[in-house]
Amino acid sequence: MSVSGTTETSRPSEAPRRRLTRRQRHRLVLGGEYTVFLAVLLALVLLADWGTVRLNLANWDVAKQLFPDIITVGLRNTVLYTLLAYAFGLVVGVIVAMMRLSSVPPYRWFAMAFVEIFRGLPALLIIIFVGFGIPFAFSIEIPGGVVGQITLALGMVAAGYMAETVRAGIEAVPRGQLEAARSLGMSYGRAMRSIIIPQAFRIIIPPLTNELILLFKDSSLVLFLAVTLEQRELTKFGRDLTGQVGNTTPIVVAGLCYLLITIPLGYLVRRLEARQRRGLR
């Protein structure tokens, strides 16, 4: 890529013909990069077993059988579990964030422990703990059955992250905002509800949307719980059908269904972040 060897030895005035202009050098580098790219692409096309790929990963006949259930059961449940857990996590997250900012030390300690525990543990472990550990240890049923377990487990995982995000958002609101609100006679709680939290949420909408994407993917972990056929989400649906029909296509289609949601959401996050950088409200 470098042609600096020639430039170091040659004086600018002496050998102008042997030196590459900046444009020539740029073309040379670009040409080299495209050559490597095309070589790898060619090798891939020639060496891949396209028959097997077609048969096992992108089998149209298998894919057709998946519809409409993969949407009406799989995607629907994935979205449902994600939204339930997100709503639960957001409410708990805001409460924990307020506790974290409390002037009462035990509340702060509790909030810090909560965040460390639910952010530090694997989501899968929490799901297994809620789904099997708690019912086993206390012989109790979590209300709402499997859906209740999913909401609780995924919601707590989300709450750990969201508590920190909400806290950061509240702390990002300038101190003068609280002073202005208090000087108008608002109580601390009123100032929080009407002035501080609305501004904090504007600041943290991009990270909160990111959290939605993460949660959407983490909802696949509930495949370890005892869900019925009608309660299966995308990943379990894909895995079950792959086993039933002896073909990998269902997993590929399930993956595409995830991307159908996550790519637009990712685009939305970038848009929101760009809008925030421009400082528009």
Binding site: P174, G176, Q177, E179, A180, A181, R182, S183, L184, G185, M186, R190, S194, I195, P198, Q199, R202, R281
Partner: peptide, 30 residues
């Protein structure tokens, strides 16, 4: 504090509210 108006060096208007809502919010909520 309802009887004591305060004006700050940095204005401290509420950026998420229009001028009218900035003025109206305390009469409404307080």
């Amino acid at each position: 504090r309802r009887r004591i108006g305060m004006v700050f060096q940095q204005f401290n208007l509420f950026p998420h509210l229009s001028a009218q809502d900035n003025v109206a919010i305390a009469p409404r909520k307080v």
